[in-house]
Design a protein around this nucleic acid. Structure first.
Lengths: 350, 350
DNA sequence: GCGACGGCCGTAAACGTTTACGGTTTTCGC
DNA sequence: GCGAAAACCGTAAACGTTTACGGCCGTCGC
């Protein structure tokens, strides 16, 4: 079903049909009505290639899925909720989300370059943001609309929404220090992940404020999956002056940590305090309940979509300042942050 | 960077440049070489819309993500591995994977219809296959290449790969019956999911073979998330003649089941045998280790991709029979399938 | 009643590619 | 050396849209 064929059926020119379907001026209401009805009746849907070729717009937004460098979002089982929120936000403006993966061994930048010059999408949602992420200047220089899920250390103006790990760390650290902990182990992803950087920085800051000396041996960077969480926890617990609390940034790291502790005859939430920085279903299975921080990924997706849509040409009134938001996460108290022998201040005033 | 511009740089016609880049005959090796080098040097990458508009091929394959009807795959944290495998398989033929989501409230069929007439992709990977899935006849009638992840009850010839729940159920049931269990609770998704259908059917078959009477009260259809797993397990345990073993099909259902059992003062793997039909990270967090069935999702993705690629025009030697594969899963023994008082045959010969 | 203007519509030129079709040159057998 | 065939390349017509432009009416102010 062509636009030509549809026009023929209507006794109109294809130009008029196109204008009618695209809600332009220069077409009478009655004609528009006729066209829309005929299109629906014949099941006409414009071919995207023709459309894109002429107008330069694809009507889609790309979500770049990087598999290698896991971030706080990727591999997350709640991931679907994020995508759903994104699609919902984009649907408001008749856009579609397409999730794209890099090819095997393909660099993130060449992946982006490829899709940009192919003209796959109108804008991008970046995730897995690195500490110094080359994708950001790349897109900025070509002024291609994008919003980053996660900040980078790049000192230029761009749109981002990031999880508020500053706030999370502040909460977590007061929770622990007020409970009397002075040796707090920290497990975080590689420092190339920007949030890992931030978490460590806030960790040190909180220690300073609490008057607790910093010990580099208590920090471990690495993969944050289950087995690594287990290994790391064992390692930290093997220290001469071992930590009384563990702060874990990975997805399934707490699962491994529980396992490691129990192997050493230590019970989480009694002998050692454990706090996860990010909620996730795997952790829901833990007993005692893991104290961690959670967020509404659906809403986050919606916010990302709206932030991006505002940058797309023809969609916004004017180019206001880019959205730059710290997305706050809420503390969900379980029992794992408790310890038996530290007495009174187990539930601090926050 | 145009193909026109590139041709001008080379002193060739655009036709020749196009042929050179598309590896056609009718172009001398030396010219081809020159063109390829010049393209690389200038960073020329063909515009996809122009290409698609003319040739009708997009070079992409769509993965349809249905959020509403959760299947055994969706919401799976290992999901990424599947996508990665798919992309890897497609990369072998220079294709790209695009993951598409239905819009809010959009029917699966209208979603498909929309993308098909827009010409978004060359072929489809369907998942979340329903017992009677309208997408399959839709695509068959328009002979659009696709491969379904999961069978449907539709009696036509098409390509599919499905998890071998027949095999899984056979293994699980012999494991339990040989250990002496005669009342086995079953938790499965709604019967509209094809695999749920199959599981129930095999459940009855296994009972018959073992000479155990069937009791409909032991089967529960519903959502298979954590809270539902918990509710269902409680319900089953409240039966007058309560089950001594639980078979759970959902993702996080075992997590809820553990919780429910413990609330009743029953310990999984001691008082009640628990088996999960499908591995998943949330279950890895369980203690005692959950006995369940696992698979390599990356390989599955690869197989799907290859099956689909063979159907794409110009890619295969000839249209052989469609791939129809039962993907076997391997039993991973934990301790949860054991029970204390049933004595000897805890590890059956299999 | 006349000019100007605005509402509506048709015309045709793009957008960037692929590919059927010829045309030129080279190769090759004799 | 000659004809035919093969190898190579240029030409131009698509593919399905959007959109600038211009033309035709009818309306309105005077």
């Amino acid at each position: 079903m062509d636009i030509r064929e549809l026009a023929r059926h209507l006794g109109l020119s294809i130009g008029t049909v196109s204008r009618a379907l695209n809600d332009r001026k220069d077409v009478s209401p009655v004609t528009r009505q006729r066209v829309v009805e005929a299109a629906a009746k014949h099941g006409y849907i414009p071919n995207q290639s023709g459309r894109t070729l002429r107008s330069g717009r694809t009507g889609t937004v790309g979500f770049m899925l990087t598999l290698e460098h896991d971030s706080a979002i990727h591999g997350d089982p709640f991931f679907m909720a994020l995508l759903e929120g994104l699609q919902n936000g984009l649907s408001e403006r008749d856009l579609d989300l397409v999730v794209l993966l890099a090819r095997k061994g393909e660099d993130a930048l060449t992946f982006l370059r490829r899709h940009v010059s192919r003209g796959t999408v109108d804008g991008w949602v970046l995730s897995g943001t690195q500490y110094d992420d080359p994708r950001i200047p790349f897109l900025l220089d070509r002024n291609i609309p994008f919003v980053a899920l996660g900040r980078s250390a790049i000192d230029r103006d761009y749109a981002w929404i990031d999880l508020d790990f500053e706030g999370v760390m502040a909460d977590a650290m007061t929770l622990l220090t007020k409970a009397g902990h002075r040796r707090i182990g920290l497990v975080a992803p590689p420092a190339t992940i920007n949030n890992s950087h931030i978490v460590v920085e806030r960790y040190r800051y909180a220690l300073t404020r609490a008057g607790i000396p910093f010990d580099a041996a208590l920090i471990h960077h690495g993969e944050t999956d289950e087995s690594d969480g287990e290994a790391t926890a064992s390692e930290l617990m093997a220290l001469a002056d071992r930590p009384t609390a563990l702060l874990l940034m990975g997805e399934t790291a707490p699962v491994g940590a529980y396992r490691a502790l129990r192997r050493l005859g230590l019970e989480p939430g009694r002998d050692v305090a454990v706090i996860g920085l990010r909620d996730n279903p795997a952790c829901r299975a833990l007993s005692p309940d893991l104290t961690c921080f959670s967020l509404e990924l659906g809403d986050l997706g919606l916010a990302l979509a709206r932030g991006l849509v505002a940058m797309l040409p023809g969609h916004s009134p004017a180019a206001g300042p880019s959205v730059q938001t710290l997305w706050s996460m809420s503390l969900r108290l379980g029992q794992s942050h408790l310890t038996q022998d530290r007495g009174s201040a187990v539930v601090p005033s926050m």
